[in-house]
């Protein structure tokens, strides 16, 4: 056993750079998350759709493999739509992962009154948020845009000349992935800061997307409009911003499907509501992120001040 000095010594040795301190928090939070076996299993399982996508890309470029598997012709067209779909699938897995990991990031620190311990050190609130967000950014990047970029690389390697025409997809994958990760990370951290119970916090995150979507459709249906989608963050990101990023046309992107009225009398033309403009969708997403930061700023304090 090591022999340790049993006196108090001041420390005058080298210190780590200030900019890297938030990574300590990220590292320890990741250790804590991966202590859970179900969580580790979930991370591993979320790579399966990516592997299948990789196999699809390979099969579409390997006639020999297709012959061996007795598959007729190219089974799928590898285009921006394909990458968007893969990223969308991974995006929902990332959402599930956030609902699992996010609520446990800030709430326990608040419940155990640990913030004074963090903030009594040369460590700011911004670094705290950055450190906690870093956990989600790393985890979610590892199952969203990073592997999809690898798939892009695989496709570019298998088809000569394809990269030259489609290199812009790399930027789209990165931006689309980061946008989704930023939104769900900020939402889950803000919820975690305000809701103490993990299950309730996860339910709240689901509620924001699914109840928001239901509410948006209700407004659209009743008022024959598309503006209700402004309450549907999922639609704004997947249905308005992503199609623009991937330059794909989505059926009535942003329009209200309920507004098509086949039962209208002959001669009357139903005016389908206009889709949500891109700038408005971006604006709502930015406002949602700003509200999350505001909520975090209000909650993450070393000492809570009671007014009155």
């Amino acid at each position: 056993m090591a022999v340790y000095k049993r006196t108090y010594r001041r420390y005058d040795g080298p210190l780590t750079p200030q900019w890297s301190r938030f990574l300590v928090l990220t590292r320890y939070s990741l250790y804590t998350l991966f202590d859970s076996r179900p969580f580790t299993a979930f991370v591993v399982l979320s790579a399966i759709p990516l592997l299948l996508s990789g196999v699809l890309i390979y099969l579409s470029h390997s006639p020999m493999a297709r012959t061996l598997l007795q598959l007729p012709g190219p089974i799928i067209k590898i285009d921006p739509k394909f990458f968007r779909q893969v990223l969308l699938n991974q995006g929902w897995l990332a959402f599930l992962m956030t609902a699992w990991a996010g609520p446990g990031l800030v709430a326990p620190d608040l419940a155990n009154q640990a913030l004074p311990l963090y903030l009594s050190r040369p460590f700011s609130r911004a670094e705290y948020v950055l450190g906690k967000m870093g956990v989600l950014f790393l985890l979610l990047s590892a199952i969203t845009w990073l592997p999809v970029l690898l798939l892009f690389g695989l496709q570019a390697g298998l088809e000569a000349g394809w990269f030259k025409e489609n290199y812009w997809i790399m930027g789209s994958i990165f931006l689309a992935g980061m946008l989704w990760i930023s939104v769900i990370s900020l939402l889950s951290l803000a919820i975690s800061a305000w809701v103490r119970w993990r299950m309730v916090a996860s339910a709240f995150l689901f509620g924001i997307f699914f109840v928001g979507a239901a509410f948006a459709n209700m407004i659209n249906g009743i008022l024959n409009t598309s503006w209700g989608h402004l309450l549907n963050l999922g639609h704004l990101i997947f249905g308005v911003i992503w199609p623009k990023l991937f330059r794909v046309a989505v059926d009535a992107a942003g329009a209200n499907p309920h507004a098509r009225r086949p039962h209208l009398p002959p001669g009357m033309v139903a005016l389908a509501p206009l889709p949500i403009p891109l700038w408005q969708a971006c604006m709502v997403v930015v406002v949602a992120c700003a509200v999350c930061l505001l909520l975090l700023n209000r909650r993450l304090r070393a000492r809570e001040v009671v007014r009155g």
Partner: peptide, 23 residues
């Protein structure tokens, strides 16, 4: 009482020391 949930004593104190800037 101010702790980080679920940590062992040694991990907690090491964590705090690293946040203070120690390698």
């Amino acid at each position: 009482e101010a702790f980080i949930a679920g940590m062992s004593g040694v991990r907690f104190v090491r964590y705090m020391a690293e946040l203070a800037g120690l390698p």
